[in-house]
Write a protein that binds this DNA or RNA. Structure first.
Lengths: 351, 351
DNA sequence: CCCAGATATGCTCGATATGAGTATATTTGA
DNA sequence: TCAAATATACTCATATCGAGCATATCTGGG
């Protein structure tokens, strides 16, 4: 127990009780709406997909994530509110859910013709097994690489990086910032290099949000134009990459992808995406669908078996195209044995 | 680029446009106040401290974190609002800031006699160098182990774990839950064992929030009683551990500690807490102040030097009590060389 | 002045984990 | 019946990690 000797007192020069100012005193100027947004992820046939919904049945209506406002009178918790909205909008009962981040930038919520009240978006990640998603009532499952084509490294480094993104990002980096920015700690060129793994830098598959934000700043995603960053950015309108989403939903999805990629390495959440029984190669394919690169098959087996993440069911799966594969299931006891069990593939070993 | 062949369509049976419901339509039932809360951390003489403020100058007034409501009209971003509040309440210009989590549970915000409007708390972590904190106007710096004595492993496993917490937690685990809980994935006994490293389980220094939440559920922290969980919990009032805080600020602080402990391992944020020049042993002591355990001195040197995190300044520090120590500085170039540079001490090697 | 005590720093060594490759086992389908 | 495909087992060089020994260089006291 620490004694209070280490406690430092600082003279209080200004004595007004500012600590409580505002709360319960000001009427409504400080009230905002909270939007609860869900990136619901599954892996279908080795494709990571996310549930997208449209405002109307019009196929040209913009896509977004399922969302709804937090209703403090109806919802006891934030996560409860999210589950309620998803159940109503998509007819889906969520299993694994985790909070991602709260976004509140002004301007990031505008839609054409919107009154744009101030909204703070709280993003959530939900993981669900592919077999559960038949019950869906509305919405469509889209590959998350539809929105982020540069994140798809399953067939090697995607061409779009060198041919499309790199030259336009470099052009943007050479354009001076409009207002002298308050001492950016890292230069634009270096940010681009580190985020996108250019000029020999390593690709870090977890930096999904950083990459999206950089493209947004550079005016290379549609949302930047929609939010009015157009005028300040481009002489000739540059192309814009990846499918757009409403509001700041693509930013939330970027956060969700990055979090998923990070989390499977130290929590056994990959099994939220798997059926009860699976072969080790199916497990590997699911991991690769999420992380991107090809993993060494024999070492992957050693990794997951050695970590005690799985146990054989005793059955085998035939018709694999060769020798039958043993079936495995998630070994729940690992939660009681290791503090941070996960598919510990090394970061930075990609390329 | 992924083709849209992988895109699945789900029949839309219910056609009502629920997606936009609520936003900008309902008047005020869905509006809430957002509280921005800062856990401002420094390391003073090898003690990790956090800035606490009191509602009034009365020394018995409850402590809390600096906070204020988000004002959408004044603050352009959430983080900007936080910085403004901290500047006003503590006269402190924050450097490194990161968002932690948004808490919205009803009931967690009550204070005696409060009208308790619904407030969603967004917690932030700020790291600052000890030499900066002289300029403070109000508030007091408290060891974070004052609030979480069981987290202090610098002198080995703290006694309070075995003598105080473990027996009371076990007693709570044997008491049946009041309402049959919806299939808890892990039993209470197992949660206790894994969270607190009992019965041979490893201590995971990052699980600060999980431990606090468990103590809250068990009624072993003062906040649980304040929030009205008393009646349902205890026959004879149990002791309550660690210094209490207002609202859910101790929960935010727990999140901040856990995040700090996790983050120094893969981002060079430890240097936010260090002066510009330091010896490797000072760096180690700072890491240990945060993580708890004693690290092997020679291996720690090998680790930070080998990772390219620091470079010698050429100067030495004398009066160390022995051979003078070389002074080092943070080597910023490491940000351009490695995707996730940090003090990669192994998790789970504690004990 | 010299030595004990204390800290800083350099180096070794065994255990373990990791990346990469080779070899063997079992199936399916031509 | 064999080729092709996949599954699985095993090997080996290397990197990393935990732990300890050894040396360097200061301060303070006799």
């Amino acid at each position: 127990m620490i004694s209070d000797a280490n406690l430092r007192r600082i003279p209080r020069e200004t004595l007004e009780p500012t600590a409580r100012r505002g709360i319960a005193v000001r009427p409504d100027t400080s009230k905002v709406e909270i939007g609860l947004n869900a990136a619901i992820v599954a892996v279908l046939d080795n494709e990571p997909v996310v549930l997208a919904v449209r405002e109307s049945t019009d196929a040209s209506a913009p896509e977004g994530l399922p969302f709804g406002p937090f209703e403090p009178l109806e919802h006891r918790t934030l996560e409860g509110g999210l589950r309620a909205w998803v159940a109503e909008q998509a007819g889906l009962d969520l299993g694994y859910v985790e909070q991602l981040y709260s976004f509140g930038d002004r301007g990031r919520h505008a839609e054409p013709g919107d009154a744009a009240p101030h909204v703070v978006s709280i993003g959530y990640l939900a993981l669900t097994e592919a077999s559960h998603i038949q019950e869906l009532q509305r919405g469509l499952w889209r590959s998350w690489y539809h929105y982020f084509p540069w994140e798809d490294w399953r067939k090697g480094r995607p061409d779009i990086l060198e041919t499309e993104l790199a030259p336009r990002l470099r052009e943007w980096a050479e354009r001076p910032p409009l207002k002298a920015s308050p001492e950016r700690p890292v230069r634009r060129q270096d940010r681009i290099r580190m985020c996108f793994g250019l000029d020999g830098a390593a690709w870090d598959e977890e930096k999904v949000l950083e990459r999206y934000e950089l493209l947004y700043e550079a005016g290379l995603v549609e949302e930047a134009r929609r939010d009015g960053r157009e005028a300040s950015l481009s002489w000739s309108p540059p192309p814009r990459f990846g499918g757009m989403m409403r509001f700041d939903h693509r930013r939330i999805l970027a956060t969700a992808i990055g979090r998923t990629r990070a989390k499977i390495k130290y929590r056994p959440v990959i099994f939220e995406l798997m059926p009860g029984e699976f072969t080790l190669f199916e497990l590997q394919k699911t991991v690769e669908a999420i992380l991107g690169p090809h993993l060494h098959k024999q070492n992957f087996r050693r990794l997951v078996e050695g970590a005690g993440l799985v146990e054989p069911t005793g059955d085998v799966k035939t018709r694999t195209g060769g020798r039958p594969a043993k079936l495995y299931r998630f070994r729940k006891e690992v939660l009681l044995e290791r503090p941070a069990p996960g598919v510990r593939v090394k970061p930075g070993r990609v390329q």
